[in-house]
């Protein structure tokens, strides 16, 4: 028994002080890509050509759809002008799908607190039911990790629950397969009103690498009204946490 106490002391307190203190991210972390359209050579579309999900398109300025982006290194490698760099900004959750489409050096319009009426009911205690609908278990794993002592989601009044009947909303991952459509709709129906829907990851937002596959019927906002979109493949846990905290008004401004 005493060894257990010594272990407890050695393991220490490991909860990160987010959101009061900025999180420590890996040096090579790939957040929102930084694109300097002024460096583009006329006629070059190397970045768009290599993009696996057609997240990049060329007009007067480069347009980037964060909802499709896999945050892979391909565009930065392909750009002959080195005009694209993986940025380190992890904050990218938005309330509306169109807020994830960025032109030039634009940054996303970050999510705002849920509507007043919802906030009054759910703001201080948000129970979520997670539904994986064709996800590859990467988004699921980095949602699950919010329950560890590192992120300690419970301290914000947010909790994942076992039954949709105990939940205030759904957190959906995956491109929504045909085979999960009925289960997703039934789970959503079982959540009492008022409720929120959160789409986490490129698949849930746009189909991700599976976009256009006839085996899928998504993305999520084609099936259900979505209140929060969290881009990434998968999103870093702090990106998800940042989005959730914005939704419940614990992080307010976009600065």
């Amino acid at each position: 028994m005493s060894s257990l106490i010594f272990t407890r002391i050695r393991q220490g307190k490991r909860t990160i002080p987010f959101p009061e203190v900025e999180p420590a991210l890996p040096e090579r972390f790939r957040g929102i890509p930084e694109i300097d359209s002024s460096l583009c050579v006329s006629g070059c579309s190397a970045c768009a050509e290599v993009c696996p999900t057609d997240a990049i398109s060329h007009g007067a300025a480069v347009k980037l759809d964060l909802g499709r982006c896999l945050f892979c290194p391909e565009c930065a490698i392909a750009c002959p002008q080195q005009a694209i760099h993986p940025g380190n900004d992890y904050r990218m959750a938005a309330n509306r799908r169109e807020d994830l489409i960025l032109t030039g050096a634009e940054t996303p319009k970050l999510a705002r607190r849920m509507a007043d009426e919802l906030y009054r009911v759910l703001g201080r205690s948000l129970k979520l039911r997670q539904v994986s609908a064709g996800g590859c278990n990467a988004c699921e794993a980095d949602v699950n990790v919010l329950n560890t002592v590192v992120f300690d989601l419970g301290r914000f009044g947010i909790q994942f629950v076992a039954s949709p009947r105990h939940a205030d909303g759904l957190l959906i991952t995956g491109p929504v397969t045909r085979n999960m459509l009925a289960a997703l709709e039934k789970t959503h129906d079982a959540v009492p009103d008022p409720k929120v829907v959160i789409a986490v990851g490129a698949c849930a937002i746009s189909g991700g690498p599976f976009r256009g596959h006839p085996e899928t019927v998504g993305p999520a906002d084609r099936i259900l009204p979505v209140d929060l979109f969290v881009p990434g493949c998968p999103p870093h846990p702090v990106t998800i946490l940042d989005g959730l905290l914005r939704l419940v008004g614990r992080i307010r401004d976009s600065a």
Binding site: S132, A133, G134, G135, G174, P175, T177, R178, N179, M180, A183, P209, F210, H213, P214, E215, T216
Partner: peptide, 11 residues
Amino acid sequence: LGYQHRGVERA
């Protein structure tokens, strides 16, 4: 099983 079938091998 099969609920996660998203056509990845076919693609």
